[in-house]
């Protein structure tokens, strides 16, 4: 597995992940928005997945749309829980202004196990995301006035330690395997995707048609939980190691 962060210049945070033959690029953009009236003190997060025909010829035309929608929805479901990702930190002024994270996921090459690759890349990109510091907010009549720091390095980082990691478990014959390649995906009878944050499940869904026995399902869930926890720990260790952006002068 190969992971790079901070590679898109115009994005607030980005990551690229290469997992065997799967290649995913994730970039996070930030916009200022009005929060939902139902959740006035929370920000927003949205996921967009683009399965371009570059990745595999199957995605030609509208072929990838369905898969893209499924991945985007599963991510939205996994990040919805307050415990997994706290949206209240994205609030600028209650009911008036909030940050909206736009997470764009571009699938460059498709070699199986898309869900896992995408979720890891998204977590890394969110880790890398820097939100500009808001110096002051006040109400002027009915208009909100905001003062955002001009300094590029004066930013806040997001707390993504609890962000979910997704793991695909495929049932092939009598065995359950994790991290299936595209050939393995082809011959699996059923596959389950679990999103796990802090040993707790935030989303479970079946990514292909095919049924399984309840006990097999429970075994899959247990296995998924263990693998996701290990993966999460490994990812966080790597991310901690990456040097933070230092304020270096122009000539240095």
């Amino acid at each position: 597995m190969e992971l790079e962060t901070d590679i898109v210049a115009h994005a607030f945070g980005s990551a690229r992940l290469r997992l065997a033959n799967t290649d995913v690029l994730v970039a996070v953009k930030i916009e200022v928005e009005v929060p939902f009236p139902e959740q006035p003190d929370e920000g927003k997060i949205e996921f967009f997945v683009d399965c371009s025909a570059n990745a595999t010829p199957d995605f030609e035309g509208r072929g990838g749309e369905e898969l893209a929608m499924e991945i985007a929805n599963s991510l939205a479901g996994a990040y919805k829980s307050t415990q997994a990702f706290d949206l209240s930190s994205l609030c600028i002024m209650k009911g008036r202004k909030c940050w909206k994270l736009l997470v764009d996921i571009l699938i460059l090459e498709c070699g199986g196990n898309l869900y896992d690759a995408v979720s890891i890349a998204v977590k890394a990109a969110l880790w890398n995301t820097r939100i500009p510091k808001v110096l002051s907010v006040h109400l002027d009549g009915n208009k909100v006035e905001m003062d955002v720091s001009d300094n590029v390095h004066d930013c806040e980082k997001l707390d993504v330690a609890r962000a979910p990691i997704m793991v695909t478990i495929s049932k092939i014959g009598d065995h359950c395997v994790v991290d299936p390649s595209s050939a393995e995906e082809q011959c699996s009878t059923a596959s389950v995707v679990v999103a796990v944050s802090q040993k707790r499940f935030t989303t479970i869904l079946q990514s292909s048609s095919g049924a399984l026995h309840p006990t097999t399902l429970m075994d899959c869930l247990k296995m998924g939980c263990e693998v996701a926890t290990q993966l999460d720990m490994a990812l966080l260790q790597i991310l901690m190691k990456t040097p933070s952006q230092k304020d270096i002068g122009f000539l240095l």
């Binding site: 944050s197 707790r200 935030t202 989303t203 479970i204 079946q206 399902l217 429970m218 869930l221």
Partner: peptide, 20 residues
Amino acid sequence: THQQVSKFYQTGNLDLKDLN
């Protein structure tokens, strides 16, 4: 009759024991 789960879908935040 076949004792097969054709679709399982979950959202929220649960631990393994509760799920089982």
